Simulated scan of single mutants.
Amino acid sequence: MSIIPISAGIPLTETEPKQKWLEEWSKQLFVKVSIDSEYGWGEVLPAAFNSPALYADIVKRLEPSLNGMEISEPGIIWEKLRKLTFSGGYGPVIGAISGVDIALWDLKAKLSKLYLGDIFGKNEQKIARYASLSRYANYEAVIRASKNIVESGFKAIKLHQTKDDTLESVKRFREEIGYGVDLMVDLNCAMNIDEAIKFANSVQRYELKWVEEPIWPPDDLASLKKINDIVPVAAGENFFDFFKFEDAVHLEALTYYQPDVTKVGGLTPTLKILDLLKKNHEQVAFHNRPHNGWIGIFASIAAARMNGVDALIETPPNGVPSQYFRYNAMITSEVIAPNGVGLSIEPIEPLPQPKDEKILIFHD
């Protein structure tokens, strides 16, 4: 079995006006797992330091431990890798495992000549897409970009503005675009609990679908519960195991749960998390960094289909760039419906490489 981490620099598709974070969101890390002439693809979100190199090194170190294992049993391999790397924490290690696990599932479905989402039987789930925008210089740019996105057909938009201009951006959005479009905001953990409660009370009148990760740390469930009592809260991209999701469900801390298949360990733990959310009738909104990686997006859709849950899918406000990917799917501004084998998508090699790595500490 061969496991190869492949860094890429597929550029973020520019909007009008041009968004910020173009360089930061133009880095990807894919994982290619092959046996003989067959192969599967996975994706890792290199969140820590925005450093693909950090995660790629961990992926390389995983390969020797998989020699002789049955590639048809991703769950057994996941358990071995988790025990092998366990040190009480998660972060980059569980992120690296994510890419390997997704690739193994892709390969398993390809060997079976099935679409991965149908590997446990056909499910026709409602997988609704929304446009997730990068950050803009000011609220005037936010509104111009949002109007263009709405005109292209999107009916749901998420903003990533600072804690200082999010409220004004929301106000202007509702005044100029109206209430016929679902609107969400991601605060990127920028507030303390007092600031977040004040914000929640102020923004309540604008009928947001959710406020995402309003506070630091992002897994402070007791504080998230307080905010969720005022406005719908979404979180989960920074929950790195099943038990944190279980705790959040029991506490009723969230309205929308956001597992990220490229961060939480791949499809194997995601399926367990989805089973928990389905049994408790919780709403699922997969997190995906809205760049042009796309493997994680298709893996999220497959997970929803495999588990039989309706879900929202976070995507960039553009189509799959065909110069970088082969894919088989029906894609509109509202839905993505894969219909190939495996994940129904794979990168076209050779991929463009990222620019010289810059360490990203934190965005507020």
Rank of each mutant, 00 (worst) to 15 (best):
K113A: 08
N188M: 13
L104Y: 11
V142P: 02
I77T: 06
E151G: 02
R305P: 00
K32T: 02
K358F: 06
I227W: 03
P259Y: 04
P352C: 05
A303R: 04
A234F: 00
G68C: 07
A200P: 09
G153P: 12
E38S: 07
E237N: 03
E124M: 08
E195H: 05
E346S: 12
K226A: 02
D220Y: 14
W41S: 04
L116T: 12
S333L: 00
E314V: 06
K355A: 13
E212C: 03
N192T: 13
L360W: 15
R61F: 00
V320W: 08
H281I: 04
L360C: 06
D164E: 12
A222P: 00
P352F: 06
L271V: 11
T162V: 03
Y256N: 08
P11A: 06
I119S: 10
K158N: 10
K158E: 11
T262N: 12
K198T: 13
P352S: 05
N67D: 13
I227D: 05
E314F: 03
N67Q: 13
V233S: 02
R326G: 01
K83R: 13
S202R: 15
Y256E: 05
S65V: 08
A128L: 14
S112P: 00
G180K: 14
P321C: 05
W21E: 03
P218R: 04
E140D: 15
F240R: 12
G265W: 12
N138I: 12
A329H: 11
G236P: 05
F245G: 03
P269A: 09
P217Q: 03
N123Y: 07
I76V: 13
K263M: 10
P347Y: 12
P92T: 13
L267W: 02
Y179N: 15
M69Q: 06
L360H: 14
K113D: 12
W21N: 02
S322F: 11
A337S: 13
S112G: 01
K20P: 00
P52Y: 13
L116M: 14
S65Q: 06
F240Y: 15
S26I: 02
E23Y: 13
N339T: 02
P74V: 11
K27D: 01
E175H: 10
D101N: 12
V150T: 04
L271D: 04
K27M: 02
V181I: 15
E346F: 10
I313D: 05
G88M: 10
N123E: 03
P11G: 05
A103S: 07
S65F: 15
V264Y: 02
V93S: 13
E346T: 10
